[in-house]
Design a protein around this nucleic acid. Structure first.
Length: 90
DNA sequence: AATGAGCGT
């Protein structure tokens, strides 16, 4: 189950996400997207959970919750190449 | 190399 987490604190890293989701289930892997130039967080990340039930549970619990002082948004992730409306962003 | 909705080096 791929999970999408956004509005993260810029200080939030993979381990922070990992720890947050591990409270509710078995985390396969957690990754915060980092900017290639600045090396800092882009403000969102992805979490892979092998157990779908735990994944949904984690989403319910962590969505609109607080992480590193920021209210984050947790949803089910979309397939990678399924964002045609994605523009040049700015 | 900043920023604060959005879906990945």
């Amino acid at each position: 189950m791929n999970i999408f987490a956004a509005k993260l604190n810029y200080d939030t890293t993979d381990e922070t996400l990992q720890a947050a989701f591990e409270e509710f289930g078995e985390v396969d892997s957690a990754k915060v997207i980092m900017d290639k130039f600045t090396g800092r967080s882009k403000g969102f990340g992805f979490v892979e959970m092998s157990n779908d039930a735990e994944a949904r549970n984690a989403i319910n619990a962590l969505n609109d919750s607080e992480l590193d002082g920021r209210t984050i948004v947790v949803k089910v992730a979309e397939p990678k190449g399924d964002r045609p409306q994605r523009r040049e962003r700015y």
